[in-house]
Design a binder for these strands. Structure first.
Lengths: 209, 209
DNA sequence: GAGCGTAGTGTCAGTCGCTGACAATTGACA
DNA sequence: TGTCAATTGTCAGCGACTGACACTACGCTC
């Protein structure tokens, strides 16, 4: 299982991710070449592309991990909960575990800075949005399964996930632009934005909150 | 105003768009090179990049036009309407005008096929999502203006637009995969999906619609 | 422990998207 | 008609990415 070969591979992959993150954060995404990343880990460019199918993938690796983490948490949730409530509560529950999972690969502070790079680099943001869309589709299937609804005929799972994800993206963007990008802030921002979903859709907006 | 120079420029730009659409639709986006597009219009590759900053832009040109069209329609809407209702009604109103605007540039049938290409090509889908995000931000500002709310402190404009746009994207995707991609179907699909926004968010989903 | 098969890597050559620089052309306007 | 400025083509070059091939070294068998 843990042959020398396996461990070596894991190590160079992690090293590539960390090196790429550091370069992206300090120089910017576009200004960093794949050659620089490969050189920092002392492998050839060709090897880089054997680990990651493109430059975006190494930048979004951790993000994708977090997404998968959330998805698995939903899967593991007890059934019977109303779907929106399930999404909301699960999200609220896993922050600390997410941090732990991230730190097995990249220092958390580096990940936070990387989030800002993703939001500000056009190419990276585009790729991120597409990855999110793929994850949304998986969430749709899971929500449909849990509620015993057929997503091919009933639009509610897709509509719910689309609305939820849209709000989460807005919250993430808002959060990434604060001075204080701590876990605690992330938790409250997402909570607040989700709480606004109902009020925002109602016909009349009385002034003030 | 309409000098020979202007008209010539307009013509090559339109020719590039049409040629690109035809190539993308028949060969696929990735399989089409910029050289092919330029050659089809008998200009140099360099000239192509003077009209469009990258390959995605020519593919998304019409989509962006439609987005801008919707935005302008919102701007022109009478004030006082509840925000969600304004988005919904405006969308419902402009379908025919959109078709007319599109057909000034590209045959509508070609545009419809192009929509499917966008949904199925990863690179193009990613770029499309990013463009949509930019348009969402403009919508946020406009909704905030109309309701007299400050989007920097009140999250409701962003939340509303995010939810609305998310649902529209899902509807568009669903529509583009139908056999019948007519305007009439588009109108009903978007209407139905938007109508599901409320029910999808409520705590309990009774079986069946 | 020698030797064999194969997974992982480096090198090289080539394609494609995209850009800057410079020269040539051509419409606009006096 | 002649000058100015906008448009275009050509060329050279960078960076992302890929296929092909040869080489190294891990892992497993005998």
């Amino acid at each position: 299982m843990t042959g020398l070969r396996e461990r070596k591979k894991q190590r160079t992959r992690d090293a590539l991710i960390v090196a790429a993150h550091e370069l992206f954060v300090t120089q910017g995404y576009d200004a960093t070449t794949v050659d620089q990343i490969a050189e920092a880990v002392d492998v050839s460019q060709r090897t880089f592309f054997r680990y990651f199918s493109n430059k975006e993938e190494v930048a979004l690796f951790v993000q994708d991990m977090v997404g998968t983490f959330f998805y698995e948490a939903i899967r593991a949730s007890p059934p019977g909960e109303p779907p929106l409530e399930c999404l909301r509560r699960t999200l609220d529950d896993i922050w600390d575990d997410v941090q732990g999972a991230v730190e097995e690969i990249v220092p958390f502070a580096l990940h936070l800075k990387m989030c800002q790079v993703i939001e500000t680099s056009p190419a990276l943001l585009a790729a991120h949005l597409r990855h999110s869309l793929l994850m949304e589709e998986k969430l749709v299937q899971e929500i449909a399964r849990r509620t015993g609804v057929d997503p091919a005929t009933d639009p509610r799972p897709r509509v719910l996930v689309a609305a939820f994800s849209g709000v989460m993206r807005v919250a993430a963007r808002e959060w990434s632009m604060r001075e204080n990008t701590s876990l605690e802030v992330a938790r409250t921002v997402t909570r607040d934005y989700l709480a606004q979903l109902g009020p925002a859709l109602t016909a009349d907006w009385g002034r003030r909150n």
